[in-house]
Simulated assay, not measured.
Amino acid sequence: MVSRVIYGRGSFNQLSDIIAPKRLNVKAPFIYLVDDVFKGNAWLTSRISLAYEDQLLFISADQEPTTSQVDDLVEQIILNHKDRPSGIIGIGGGTLLDLAKAVALMLTNKGESKDYQGWDLVKSPAIYHVGIPTISGTGAEVSRTTVLTGPERKLGINSDYTPFDQVILDPELTTGIPKDQWFYTGMDCFIHCVESLNGTYLNAFSQSYGEKAYELCKEIFMDDKGSQEEQQDKLMMASWHGGMSIAYSQVGVAHALSYGLGYLLGTRHGIGNCIVFDNLEEFYPEGVALFKKMKTLHGIQLPQGICSELGDDEFNIMIDVALGLEPLWENAIGKNWKQTITRDKLRSLYERM
């Protein structure tokens, strides 16, 4: 679990005070990885206090994080600084938070990040790392994984060393998000809840978080009441609770298939989950029915036919990626999932998208 978390509007202003005791020495910098959407945005950047050898790196979130990107960042940091950094601070959405977690891990573990894609392969604790979400829904701020697209697969570095040491939850930072992006990342949270609450890994701990997040999602996306500030506050907490729910259970069919889309087509995670989930009545009938109502209520038009021109080799690549996520299928279907989740079954599902 994340060992320290602070919540509240304006709490981002406390960042300098929070990390100051963690500085190792004047030559051990804090490295800030910041979504480049904030480049030139003094409202946020003026509140980041750089000192000594500290470095602020603006990174585009247009593409989801890759293992090569992580390795390049780690190499850049090592070459530019003689001392190991005091900490990594990620500021942004799921992409930046996953990058921050992965870089913090790879500064203390040998080899390439692709070597650690999987479950519990990390041997050494990461350096101190802080997560500050600027969009709500992904749950990356609380999860024990950092999802990366590698040369052979899209898969997270899942370990007890991955979670942030400190998270700052400031709903003010989510102001100004485009409506479509707000919906897609919000639905990522909703789908987390559906897959957790309907999975075989469900337990009382994950259920308590999942149910709370599910109810918050319904309030936000169905009732559509309250001020913008209230909606921001609720979605930030839904994201946290949804992330906690899957941290103690697992996701399911939508995420497994979405990883295939992301690996082959570069489909962003949030919208990919929505495209997949829209076709999963067979697995999550109540959740999909509610999702379709939310989609209509907010006037969201999902892309159609993204798999219509793919060939056999391309379908097989997506199917291989999806089938490699065995814990997701076991959670969704049960230990005997291979009896029903065949390559033909997955091909038919992809062909509907």
Rank of each mutant, 00 (worst) to 15 (best):
S86V: 09
V70T: 11
D115A: 13
I91V: 12
K82W: 07
L57K: 14
L105N: 11
K82L: 11
I88W: 12
T138N: 06
Y52L: 09
Q63C: 12
L79H: 12
S68M: 10
P85H: 05
P133I: 10
L97V: 02
T145M: 10
A51M: 13
A140C: 11
I127R: 08
V103G: 01
K110A: 15
K101L: 07
I89L: 06
V147Y: 00
L105Q: 09
G90H: 08
T108E: 13
L121H: 09
Y116T: 03
G131I: 11
R84K: 15
V130C: 14
I77D: 04
G137M: 13
I135S: 13
E64A: 04
L148C: 07
I89P: 09
G92P: 09
V147W: 01
K110C: 02
I89H: 03
I77Y: 00
V130T: 13
S113H: 04
L105R: 04
H129R: 15
F58I: 03
D120P: 01
D72F: 04
A100M: 09
T134L: 04
V142K: 08
L56V: 04
T95Q: 07
I78R: 15
V130N: 06
L121D: 08
I59P: 05
G111A: 11
L56D: 06
Q117K: 07
S136P: 12
I127Y: 03
Y52P: 08
G118V: 06
T67P: 02
D71N: 03
E53D: 14
D72R: 11
S113D: 04
G118C: 08
T134M: 02
T138C: 08
Q69P: 00
V147F: 02
I59W: 12
L148I: 10
D115P: 02
E75A: 12
L99C: 07
I135Y: 07
L96M: 15
E112L: 13
G139K: 02
V70R: 07
D83L: 01
A51C: 12
D120A: 06
I127K: 13
K123G: 01
G92L: 03
L56T: 04
A61H: 06
T108Y: 00
E64H: 01
A126K: 07
L105V: 15
S136E: 03
D115W: 00
I78P: 00
Q76V: 01
G131S: 07
I91G: 05
S49C: 11
L73M: 05
E75G: 13
S143P: 01
L57A: 06
Q117L: 14
